[in-house]
């Protein structure tokens, strides 16, 4: 939230904020586990802050879920199991990486579709407009 606020003046304005970001020392077994934890929680949304990840948020809610996720990791749960567990409770809204579903088809295929359409237009225009190389006269002088 605080982050969102500060960025807010990027494009215009802001209001008050008091929250601080999260510093939450958890007793990880090793670096790999810590990296995995950071990677996972960075891609989860802190529901109560709306535009902050679970990793970054200092909200009580985020702290508690971080603890839960940490515990589940200790129990040997996979990232997917943890995500499923969260989705069952908080819906896919908690995932910053929206899964492919009927409701996200336009999201995931929108960009390729736009690229394809743009690519076709460009290809057609170039094909129509471009001349064979030998038909183009060398231009003397500065080429810039």
């Amino acid at each position: 939230m605080k982050r969102l606020l500060a960025i807010a003046i990027l494009a215009f304005a802001l209001t008050l904020s008091t929250a601080a970001f999260a510093i939450d020392p958890l007793p990880f077994q090793n670096t790999a586990q810590r990296d995995r934890f950071q990677h996972l929680t960075r891609e989860l949304r802190c529901m109560v802050c709306q535009d902050e990840s679970l990793l970054a948020s200092n909200a009580d809610f985020a702290k508690q879920l971080r603890r839960q996720i940490f515990d589940m990791m200790q129990q040997g749960k996979s990232d997917q199991e943890i995500k499923d567990w969260l989705v069952a409770r908080y819906s896919t809204f908690i995932l910053y990486d929206p899964p492919l579903a009927p409701s996200t088809i336009a999201l995931w295929f929108g960009t390729p579709a736009i690229l394809l359409a743009g690519g076709i237009v460009v290809a057609v225009v170039l094909r129509r407009r471009a001349r064979p190389a030998h038909a183009i006269a060398e231009e003397p002088g500065e080429d810039w």
């Binding site: 508690q64 879920l65 819906s91």
Partner: peptide, 12 residues
């Protein structure tokens, strides 16, 4: 602890 509340999907 709020642990059970997580199962209910409580976030506020």
């Amino acid at each position: 602890s709020g642990d059970t509340a997580i199962n209910f999907g409580v976030y506020g």
